[in-house]
Simulated assay, not measured.
Amino acid sequence: VQRATGIANSRNILATASDPNGIQLGVSQHTRGQINFLTKETGFYQLCLGNQENHFGFMQVYLNFGVYYEGFEGNKQPEERRELNDTLEAIGTSIHKLQLHIFHMWRFYNFARMRRGADSFLLESNYRYVNWWSMAQSCVIVLSGVLQLYFLKRLFNGQSSSRQRC
């Protein structure tokens, strides 16, 4: 889980995962809140996100789920057949390891993409914030110049009476 905010104090988020019985499986309070847990039952798992540190601003959350099986063997072969097919067994083991490595690289790639997206969103938000405040301050400066010019012109304008102001 990763989140990015516009104008905020912190980019941390509280993420908790619960199993179908409501038992809490993991907690993370970090910008990249990775929670790893083992499951033994099927059902609906719950993911809760909390924003206690930043109460204001826009919130963008990226979710990335990965499920993989370790130690799961569907069909066990007899020992004689395994001895005859050592080459096929070695190939199968190396393919399984390769699949795990590819899955982990895919996860790291997704984390890097989420970090880049969060940074991009933060830069875009700050860019809009700076542009709006610069435009507002420019309008205030121009308006104060016009008002100063108006009052200076009024001060030095001569009236029809003989009384002078300066």
Rank of each mutant, 00 (worst) to 15 (best):
M114S: 11
N12I: 02
L38D: 02
V27M: 02
I95C: 07
F121D: 02
E73D: 06
C166E: 14
N64L: 14
L25K: 00
D119L: 12
L100P: 06
R154G: 15
R3S: 13
H101F: 08
E124K: 14
Q137H: 09
L123N: 13
S18W: 00
E80W: 07
L155S: 04
F111Q: 09
K40E: 09
Y109N: 14
F111W: 08
S94H: 13
R154D: 15
L155Y: 04
R11K: 07
R154Q: 14
V130Q: 04
I102D: 13
Y62A: 13
Y45M: 01
R81E: 12
F151S: 05
L84Q: 15
V130K: 09
L98H: 07
F65M: 13
N54L: 03
N110V: 06
G22N: 00
F56V: 00
L98E: 13
A136R: 13
L155R: 00
L84E: 15
G117T: 15
L122N: 12
Y129I: 00
I13G: 11
Y127A: 08
S10W: 09
A136H: 13
H101L: 10
L149N: 06
G71T: 00
G66P: 02
N36E: 11
N54W: 00
N126P: 00
T42L: 03
A8R: 01
S144K: 03
H55A: 06
N64M: 07
T16I: 02
R116C: 06
F44E: 01
R82H: 06
Q159I: 02
L143T: 06
S134G: 08
H30R: 07
F56M: 00
R116L: 13
G26Y: 11
E73C: 06
G158Q: 14
S18D: 04
N85T: 11
I23F: 01
Q148E: 05
S160A: 11
